[in-house]
Amino acid sequence: MIRIGTFLLICLALLSGPAMAGLDSDVKALFEKHEKIIHLHQTELIEQVFSKRYIQDKGGLKDFEASIKEKPKADEKKLKDMSVSWKKGAVTDRILARREEMKNGKKDKGHTEYIVIKKDGKLIIDDTIGDAD
């Protein structure tokens, strides 16, 4: 009985492994674009990365663009000073992605957690949530 259970678990891991790896690269690709928007001011990517609801809460596309551009533009090196980890929601299909900025190879203060959802087959940032715990 235990052997059957172990066999099923191995099968599940083998089947879900590639799917998780695909999801992992999708999450990383999403946050690479996110960093390009935030640090390099490539605001033309906004609608590929953020949901309409998210953009609306930032005051609409124009205000969101303006809020990004009010911060100094960084160089491409800054894009590497970021670490993203993620997990699937314990209750829903949401992905909770944690983006942490690094300083001298160490995690800098605080982090933001992003609520990522799948819309039309693509991952998109729908909301954020604070680091209270």
Partner: peptide, 10 residues
């Protein structure tokens, strides 16, 4: 005191 750091419409 906190802010939820999420959409205000939540």
């Amino acid at each position: 005191l906190h802010h939820s750091e999420s959409s205000s419409q939540n």
